[in-house]
């Protein structure tokens, strides 16, 4: 890895977000509720993996960064590392994250930093991800009693990881306050249309204030990395 300038930390943070969420979505392959969702979830996972590869390559060697860093060196927010849970849980995670990511990339695309070109391309993909998450939030929220209960449960369970999205990222020149405002308004309006309630609890836990960005993660993350990195680490120096 090159020196930890703010620009590199920014690329690493956003790259890790995309890498980790892509991995989680990849776990859905072969398990989705309908074939159309096999296609959609893999599609989103692939877009994210593509973003991760560009971002990590700005920092160093993509494979070295993905496969040879330990848990404490990853900069992704804790939200994206949360296990998939049921389909509603996954959709809640997608809704929170894609809404954030779209707003973030819109801001970055308007700037003149090193991330602007990537953001300009990725924002189109992310708008599709956000639309997908919103459509499912509406269907599940305003579908059956069971789907409504599950969707609300997913939203509630992940709420405590959303505050971290608005911790400023050095090197991005994105002001988190208007980002938070726009995010809160967007989520509020979608949940309202879906007949769901905006969760009431705190948007951070004792350990979650900017924690992922500082390399403090939740327990499931280490296990995820063990699986992801195992083969690569078993053959040091090999090319694939």
């Amino acid at each position: 890895m090159k020196t930890e300038t703010p620009a590199f930390v920014a690329a690493l943070s956003l790259g890790d977000d995309a890498l980790v969420l892509s991995h989680r979505l990849g776990e859905w392959a072969g398990h989705a509720p309908v074939l159309e969702e096999e296609v959609a979830l893999a599609n989103i996972a692939l877009d994210l993996l593509g973003q991760a590869r560009v971002l990590l390559s700005l920092v160093g060697d993509e494979d070295e960064l993905a496969y040879l860093r330990e848990e404490r060196a990853f900069r992704n927010v804790q939200l994206v590392e949360q296990p998939n849970g049921d389909f509603a849980h996954t959709i809640a995670r997608q809704l929170y994250f894609s809404t954030y990511q779209e707003l973030m990339y819109e801001q970055l695309a308007q700037g003149d930093g090193p991330l602007a070109p990537l953001a300009a391309k990725a924002v189109k993909e992310v708008a599709y991800h956000r639309d997908h998450a919103e459509q499912w939030t509406l269907r599940l929220g305003d579908g059956t009693e069971e789907s409504r209960t599950r969707m609300q449960r997913g939203l509630d369970a992940l709420w405590r990881y959303t505050g971290e999205l608005f911790a400023p990222i050095e090197g991005t020149q994105v002001d988190p306050a208007p980002l938070r405002e726009a995010w809160t308004a967007r989520i509020g309006s979608v949940l309202d249309r879906a007949t769901l309630t905006v969760p009431q609890g705190p948007q951070r836990g004792a350990w979650t204030a900017g924690a992922g960005r500082q390399g403090l993660h939740t327990e499931p993350f280490g296990r995820m990395l063990a699986e992801m990195q195992h083969l690569h680490r078993s053959h040091p120096g090999a090319t694939w």
């Binding site: 776990e27 296609v39 996972a45 494979d63 993905a66 083969l231 690569h232 090319t239 694939w240």
Partner: peptide, 17 residues
């Protein structure tokens, strides 16, 4: 989830899709 490089992982995901 165990693909040994990001390039191979992308190829495999695209294939399964």
């Amino acid at each position: 989830t165990r693909a040994p490089s990001l390039r191979r992982k992308a190829i495999l995901m695209a294939k399964v899709q």
